[in-house]
């Protein structure tokens, strides 16, 4: 600790910097690539561009379909978050607050979703969405996403609700507040930390989802940004600078969001993981 403490600290920092370079290198190369000409990418993929060309970035920003992809993703993600929070919290409230015949069984039933991956039922899910006539609509993505997110949401919500002071309900009950009203007037407002955590978790998952939109969305008008990105990539196979600019512009909101909400993201992803 004392002797060689400095050497050890230097070793630690250099290891950390090497790993950081491994992590950031591809991201930096991507962002810089969007400023370069295709020829320059070929000769100088990592370094700073000789001249900063804004045309690729501007071209994408002026492209209405880029905004349509982002808009679709945003609407789908927000609605998924809203539905998951509302439906999940309502169910978790019942499990936390009311004892009734079969409640444990129903709770275990709803937790089954924790066990298996999304992809297992993707084919029948596609048929179900098709038969419901909602193929190519936002709901085709929102409803299955919500359904698959419910298990973890209910588990986390119930744990949190059970830790709210029981006297609060009793006091409100004595004042004539019923179960349903208590949920909306007390439980939900008091649960903002867990709502925020689950909300960010669900948002990130929905925002990044690829497989489900790929299966249930067919028209470009309905495409979410991951689909749009693959579409773009397909159209500009060799124009790496355009593709890189596109990628940069789509991951930029994610990075900004991550920096702003990192507390909830880390809590949701690791805390949720540990509890799940």
């Amino acid at each position: 600790m004392m002797k060689g403490g400095l050497a050890r600290e230097l070793l630690r920092l250099s290891v950390l910097c090497i790993v950081a370079a491994f992590v950031l290198g591809p991201l930096v190369a991507t962002a810089l690539g969007g400023f370069k000409s295709n020829l320059e990418i070929r000769t100088n993929p990592m370094g700073l561009p000789a001249s900063w060309e804004l045309t690729h970035y501007l071209g994408i920003i002026r492209d209405p379909s880029f905004w349509s992809y982002l808009g679709n993703s945003l609407v789908i993600s927000l609605l998924t978050v809203f539905l998951t929070l509302l439906v999940g919290a309502a169910a978790a409230y019942v499990f936390a607050q009311i004892r009734f015949f079969g409640s444990r069984l129903l709770f275990s039933y709803l937790l089954l979703g924790l066990m298996f991956p999304f992809a297992t039922a993707i084919l029948p899910l596609f048929l179900k969405v098709r038969d419901l006539g909602i193929l190519d609509t936002y709901w085709a993505v929102i409803l299955p996403q919500t359904a698959f997110g419910l298990s973890l949401a209910i588990l986390l919500f119930r744990t949190f609700f059970e830790q709210l002071p029981r006297e609060l309900f009793e006091a409100a009950y004595v004042d004539g507040c019923g179960y349903v009203r208590f949920f909306f007037r007390f439980t939900l407002p008091l649960s903002t930390p867990i709502l925020a955590t689950v909300g960010t978790f669900v948002f990130v998952q929905s925002w990044n989802n690829f497989l489900l939109p790929l299966v249930v969305l067919n028209s470009r008008e309905a495409f979410t940004w991951p689909l749009g990105m693959m579409q773009f990539r397909g159209e500009y196979m060799t124009a790496w600078n355009l593709v890189l600019a596109f990628v940069t512009l789509t991951i930029l909101p994610a990075i900004v969001f991550f920096l702003a909400a990192q507390k909830y993201i880390v809590a949701g992803l690791t805390g949720g993981a540990v509890k799940g």
Binding site: A91, V94, L110, S151
Partner: peptide, 18 residues
Amino acid sequence: LLLPPALVLFSLFVIVPL
């Protein structure tokens, strides 16, 4: 009021397809 939405969604889009 509060339980069925979760049960319906979960059954329809998770359990039934499975």
